[in-house]
Nucleic acid binder design. Sequence first.
DNA 1: CGAATAGTGTCTATAAGACATTATACT
DNA 2: AGTATAATGTCTTATAGACACTATTCG
Lengths: 236, 236
Amino acid sequence: MSGETWSPPAILIAVDLVILTLRSSELHVLLVERGTEPYRGQHALPGGFLNTADEDIVDAALRELREEANLDLSRLHLEQLGAYGGPDRDPRGRVISIAYLAIAPELPEPVAGTDAARALWTPAADPLSRTTRLAFDHDQILADGIERARTKLERTSLATAFCPEPFTLSDLQQVYEAVWGVRLDQGNFYRKVRGVPGFVLPAGEVRRPTKGRPARLYKAGPRTTLHPPVVRPTLP
Amino acid sequence: MSGETWSPPAILIAVDLVILTLRSSELHVLLVERGTEPYRGQHALPGGFLNTADEDIVDAALRELREEANLDLSRLHLEQLGAYGGPDRDPRGRVISIAYLAIAPELPEPVAGTDAARALWTPAADPLSRTTRLAFDHDQILADGIERARTKLERTSLATAFCPEPFTLSDLQQVYEAVWGVRLDQGNFYRKVRGVPGFVLPAGEVRRPTKGRPARLYKAGPRTTLHPPVVRPTLP
DNA sequence: CGAATAGTGTCTATAAGACATTATACT
DNA sequence: AGTATAATGTCTTATAGACACTATTCG
């Protein structure tokens, strides 16, 4: 840090959110349709500008989260993805966006809130196979967010953040399958999960959809880092 | 910039660098001694403010890198750590810093450059055991940088970025041992590394320190992601 | 030769993958 | 009974860890 007396460059700080959840066993991301230029009418990640110079960045992310999505905020995972902002990112001027990854269990009423009319859940298919391009560099941010979620499933208990509590081990397995886009062997998955002490804790019992044997219920345990990790099937 | 209804919050964008390298088989980080307030005389990560509103952030990071460290820029790894900036981070006003992790092999002359007098390599011991506190939130940034390097050693070929080419497998092993702070079995390490196709490629042969059998030389291969990963010994 | 470092081989414990089997609900 | 889902068990294979052994240089 050196300079002291020159006027600061005019740079706007934005916050963008990659909000992931599971809907009917599929990974979904919350998008909004832009009502103003630029990229009017196109889909984009929810977000907005920092209100004041002394607003905390995480607070701004939480504010946007409340405005856009009606999620279970009590069990919310929120982490920063990073800063995005090439000089030509926004035609209105220099904008640097701090992107956040948010993960929460689905709620009965998925989309409602101040700006709800503009918000919609869309399948978070791999950006490559995505038909429409997102505004700004949001395709890149979304891809980074999904990749972050995928890698963190291996070594952290992030998967439980997708599940309303209490959940069954089948629920948890569906999280891994949906986020990774693979099928896992049920028996091996059970053995793995229950072999990591503190990952999940027993809760009670219930039957789910009037079909088959009732499943045991669990809640997230105190362990946040997984040893040994739940390894993703090797692709190459 | 067009005329806006509200003037943008006065926010300064800074770039800070966690520059890691290996010196005499120990992980070191480049620090500078601050010559101005605040935190005058205290150690800090090298960095500076964005020059202009249209300067690319990565360019600013590279500029600081050139100013502070005389490293092998041809084999440089540079990745973003994230944005840091609580409202009270800097007493001079609102500053949001984009932190980068830089990794490069050591050069014969380690520190020299424009602001070289202020720069010094210090052992990157775990921040907990560190005796002096860094300025601002740089202890946190440094800890995040080291942790990022540690996890990326497992699944990427990042370790080769620490080694001047060509390198021996012992050199590479020392990288893992220094960054992870563990001892690895040589035989198992050889088996592992050579079992990942494209991780390292043969180069020639040489003897290193007039002692013992000469070691084969390698250079970094095309593979950047490691399958299967080089797993860190389980701690808990 | 001995010391020192490089590299290979081998045995064992552990974890993963495939897959069969049992368990418990429902209609 | 028949079906559907949950949970456990078993066998095989791959991999990690420990460690002994051989190889090649130097003095």
